[in-house]
């Protein structure tokens, strides 16, 4: 169509370019930018979904911070979980990737197996864990009993429910490991050879070659896992319902309840914005701290 109209080639290319990206650009405006701003406005209203929103100013925020004990509980739960699962996942992912980087027979099978939990998520897996960690008949406590340990009540104990969710998240460690593995394989072998010539042992090589060279990947994973921690939902919804005694009242679940069980959409919008600010704040913090510990090769291809 454009061919019939006489246009300068550059103009035509620009028009075609905009046409090409238009699905994404329109989608961005309708499904991301627009709703994002609209929800900011809604967070200043009282909106019970069936009746039109009513402007209430900062009321929702005041209520959240001063009158809602569940908000503080959900913050405590989410941040405890971050503190528990983040170092665990980082260390385990890194450890697994170091193992997977070693040439052994059947490597493809190992990689495929360890990545499997990442593609199997959802309700099936939540139910599976609920059964594995069943206090009386689950395999975990059965195996523990065989070595003479009385296993905990897992999801059904206020003290163990949160660690149980963290344990579940550790099951997906293969996802992180695959990403570390890609980083490991990009480390030029000559660095190790040079280190060996200098008499470095395996630990020194890990400390002075592997970890610095891997720091951009670790950085990336840190941001991703931080964001992930705020997403925990299915396990909570299916297994614990936020309990026992609010021990697994994750932020996401708390927000979901406000929006879709209490239908308090204005209030829930305010909660969504608080979460957005927290996540953005932490992401910024991680980025700001990165020059202190992330090593980029000066002429590297960048990633």
């Amino acid at each position: 169509m454009l061919r019939r109209i006489h246009l300068r080639p550059a103009t035509r290319e620009a028009i075609e370019g905009y046409l090409g990206i238009s699905p994404w650009l329109i989608g961005f405006l309708i499904f991301t930018a627009g709703p994002f701003l609209a929800s900011l406005v809604l967070s200043f209203t009282d909106w019970q979904i069936t009746v039109p929103p009513r402007w209430v100013g900062l009321d929702n925020y005041v209520r959240i911070f001063t009158k809602d004990p569940d908000f503080w509980q959900s913050m405590r739960v989410t941040f405890t979980y971050v503190a528990l699962s983040l170092p665990l996942n980082l260390a385990a992912g890194l450890g697994l990737s170091l193992l997977l980087n070693h040439p052994v027979p059947g490597m493809r099978i190992f990689r495929t197996l360890f990545y499997l939990p990442v593609v199997l998520s959802g309700v099936s897996v939540a139910l599976m864990w609920m059964w594995l960690l069943n206090p009386e008949y689950g395999v975990a406590n059965t195996l523990l009993a065989m070595v003479g340990i009385q296993g905990p009540n897992w999801f059904w104990s206020p003290d163990w429910a949160l660690p149980s969710v963290a344990l579940m998240s550790l099951w997906r460690v293969g996802g992180g490991a695959i990403i570390y593995l890609a980083g490991l394989q990009n480390i030029p072998p000559h660095l190790y050879e040079a280190a060996e010539i200098d008499g470095a042992g395996p630990l020194a090589k890990l400390r002075h070659v592997t970890l610095p060279m891997l720091s951009p990947t670790i950085f990336f994973q840190l941001v991703m896992e931080l964001i992930d921690a705020f997403q925990v939902f299915t396990a909570v919804y299916v297994i614990t319902g936020g309990g026992p005694a609010r021990a697994t009242l994750f932020y996401m679940f708390f927000m979901f309840r406000a929006a879709f069980e209490d239908f308090d959409m204005g209030y829930a919008s305010a909660l969504a914005w608080i979460m957005a600010l927290i996540i953005m704040g932490f992401t910024a913090l991680v980025f700001r701290s990165s020059p202190l510990w992330v090593y980029y090769e000066s002429e590297g291809k960048g990633s």
Partner: peptide
């Protein structure tokens, strides 16, 4: 294709990758 603002728009696209899905849950529902 070359068009004005391409790099800025691509950066914007990359920035949306950093937005966790759950933040958009409620706004999209609305």
């Amino acid at each position: 294709l070359r068009f004005p603002g391409r790099n800025t728009l691509f950066l914007l696209l990359l920035a949306t990758l950093m937005i966790p899905g759950q933040i958009m849950l409620l706004p999209r529902f609305v």
